[in-house]
Nucleic acid binder design. Structure first.
Lengths: 108, 108
DNA sequence: AGGTTAGATAACCAAGTGGTTAGGTACGAG
DNA sequence: CTCGTACCTAACCACTTGGTTATCTAACCT
């Protein structure tokens, strides 16, 4: 699976997006991250592994804790990808764009 | 499934992203969309249904054709979501941000 | 050494995904 | 009316996903 697909797949789950949101406030342990959700520890571990494989978090180790930290670089790729569609975001802009194309063609 | 999750899930597949890219050049029929890929028609139909449910395409009907058109509005939501992480995209900015926070705290 | 806490791994399950083939519907052309 | 084309639905398959419980390791604290 390519990088962009892995990132999108990781972001498709609300729990994982919530984890990322939490990590914007600073590093956290697995326990801390699991607290807002009423799912089991192993379920959180799986989510974290998905995020790690997508390169969205990095993990250290301090004694018995395995602190998670946000790494948002893959999100830049997402933002850039989405920006390429900006011209299509609203119909009026599309219509304007069509008009401009038409004008260019007439010029030639 | 919420809107944002559906959008991310739809974007997680490279075939579907390629279909969206093709649709930036204008509407296309299912047949036209399927040509670049060597997968069966039904497989393409399924991809299109996913894109339609995510609100990324709209479909009309002209005789025996069912033309697809891009609707990029959900991508705006994606771009906005990703933009919220801009401050975390590179470490230097994060360090700068930490420094500013520290300075603010000292001021108080 | 023994107990507690943090966390990972393994085995399992239901549901979803991406693909297939086979067969059905709707429309235009001869 | 019949034939070909465009497309969809249905049924099936292998694989993945998001969850569970049970069991393990590692580190800390008495």
């Amino acid at each position: 699976m390519d990088q962009l697909s892995a990132t999108f797949a990781a972001l498709a789950d609300p729990t994982r997006r919530a984890i990322l949101a939490r990590l914007t406030e600073g590093p956290a342990t697995v326990k801390e991250l699991s607290e807002p959700f009423d799912i089991s520890g192993p379920a959180i571990s799986k989510h974290l592994r998905v995020l790690e494989k997508a390169g969205l978090i990095t993990r250290g180790r301090e004694a018995q804790w395995r602190p998670c930290q946000l790494d948002a670089t893959p999100l830049q790729e997402v933002a850039v990808w989405a920006e390429n569609y900006r011209r299509f975001w609203d119909a009026s802009y599309t219509r304007l764009d069509a008009l401009l194309t038409e004008m260019k063609e007439k010029e030639q």
